[in-house]
Design a binder for these strands. Structure first.
Lengths: 207, 207
DNA sequence: AAATAAAGCTAATCACAATTAGCCAAAGGA
DNA sequence: TCCTTTGGCTAATTGTGATTAGCTTTATTT
C-alpha cells in the first residue's frame, strides 16, 4: 500500500547509489513490485519522481530544523549548554551527530544523491551547502558562542570554532560514505579530534 | 593538432559539469571541432575516453606526488620547515594549496568529475579519498610532526593536527566548487581558520 | 448494485544517442 | 610518385529506455 511513497523510497535508494541518469524507470518499478508504465499513474515523469524526493526531503529537513532550531536561529536550553560543557559531553554530541548522519537511511541516501547531483543545477548546489554546512555551522556557532560567554571555553570567534569542530566530522562522514569498511578507524579519529578540540579551547590547558 | 589530447580536455570539461551520463559524444566532438564518428578514430568508446582521463590524471598526480613527496613518504627540507614555522608561513602555505586546487583548471575539473562519479565504482571512491584526503593528511602530518619535534608547535598527535588543519580548507574548497560567487567570503574564513589554528598550537599562547 | 475512479498490465511508440559502414582527402614514407 | 596510414565526413544501424495507448481489474462512491 501507498505505492506513491514506496516509489520515492525505491527511487532514492537507486539514485543515491547510481545517480539519476544511470537508473532506469523499470528498475524503480521492479523494486516497488510493479511494471514501469504503472509508475506513470503516480508521477508524470522520471524527473518528477526526482523532484518529489527533493521536496519531501526539504520538508523533513525544515521540520527537523524547526524543532531542533538546527538552522541556527534559536538559543539553547540550559540543559543543552550543560551537556555540551564537558569534554565527554562534546564527544557525545559529536558522536550522535555523526552516527545519525551516517546510519539514518534517508539521511545518508539523500546526502549521497545530492553529492552526485550537486552540480546539475545551482539550486541543488545551494541546498547541499545549506543543509550540510551553513546551517550546521550556524547552529554550532550558537553553541560555542554560549560556551565562551559563560567562560566554559576560551575563544572569541565562534564561527571559526564551529568550522574547526564541524569540518573534520563532516570529512570523516564523507569518507565513511565512500568506504564504509573504514568506519571503525575513522570513528577513532573522530573521538581524538573532539578531545583534542576541547583541550585546545580549554582555559589554561597545556595539551 | 593532437586531437587525441583535445578530446580528453573537452571531455573532462563536460564530464566535470554534467557528469558522464549526461554528456553526449556529439557534444564532446563539437567542442573539439569534429563530428561524433570521428572520435572513434581515437577512442573506441565513450567509456574509453572516461578511462583515459582517469589514467592521465592518475599519472599526473603520481608525478606530482613523487616530486613534492606529497604522498607523505618523504622528509621536508629545512627551508620548507622554516617557511611553515611562522603564522604567516602557514597562512601562505594554506592559501597556495587552496588557490592551486581551486583555480588550476585540470585539478578543479577532475575533482568535480570524481565528486560526481565517486559512487560509480569502488575504485573511483578510493582514488578520491586517496588523492584529496589520505595523501594530504599524510603529507601534512609529516610537516606537523617536524614542527612539533623542533618545538615550534606544541602537540603530540600530528595526524589529528593535520586533520584539523586540512579539513576546514577542504570544506571551504568544495563550497567554492559549488558556489564560486562566495569565494571572497570563504577565503576570509580560510585565513581566520589558519591564524586561529596556529595560535591554538603555539606554546604559551592565550588566544 | 451500478457507475466511476484508481491502479495495474501488455504492447506499441518515439526519440534519441552510441556506434558502425563505407567513402574521401591529406600526409608521409618507400 | 605511388601506396598506405590517418583522420575526417555522411549516412546508416542499433539498442535502449522513457513515455503513451488502450485494456482490465479492483476499489470507492452514490
Amino acid at each position: 500500500m501507498n505505492t506513491k511513497k514506496k516509489i520515492l523510497d525505491a527511487a532514492l535508494d537507486l539514485f543515491s547509489e547510481k545517480g539519476y541518469a544511470n537508473v532506469f524507470v523499470a528498475e524503480i518499478a521492479e523494486a516497488v513490485g510493479i511494471k514501469a508504465p504503472s509508475l506513470y499513474k503516480h508521477y508524470k515523469s522520471k524527473r518528477d519522481i526526482f523532484n518529489a524526493i527533493i521536496e519531501e526531503m526539504k520538508k523533513n529537513y525544515n521540520r527537523q530544523a524547526a524543532t531542533l532550531s538546527i538552522d541556527g536561529n534559536n538559543a539553547m536550553s540550559d540543559a543543552e549548554v550543560f551537556s555540551a560543557a564537558s569534554e565527554d559531553g562534546l564527544v557525545k554530541m559529536g558522536f550522535s551527530l555523526f552516527s545519525f548522519f551516517l546510519h539514518d537511511g534517508y539521511t545518508q541516501k539523500f546526502r549521497k544523491m545530492l553529492t552526485i547531483e550537486q552540480f546539475h543545477t545551482p539550486e541543488l548546489a545551494e541546498l547541499f551547502t545549506k543543509q550540510y554546512i551553513d546551517d550546521s555551522l550556524k547552529y554550532q556557532s550558537g553553541i560555542f558562542s554560549l560556551l565562551c560567554e559563560r567562560g566554559i571555553l576560551k575563544g572569541n570567534n565562534p564561527q571559526i570554532m564551529a568550522l574547526q569542530f564541524h569540518s573534520p566530522i563532516y570529512m570523516l562522514l564523507t569518507m565513511c560514505d565512500r568506504e564504509p569498511e573504514r568506519e571503525k578507524e575513522l570513528t577513532a579519529l573522530l573521538e581524538q579530534h573532539i578531545r583534542q578540540f576541547v583541550r585546545l579551547y580549554s582555559k589554561g590547558d597545556h595539551l
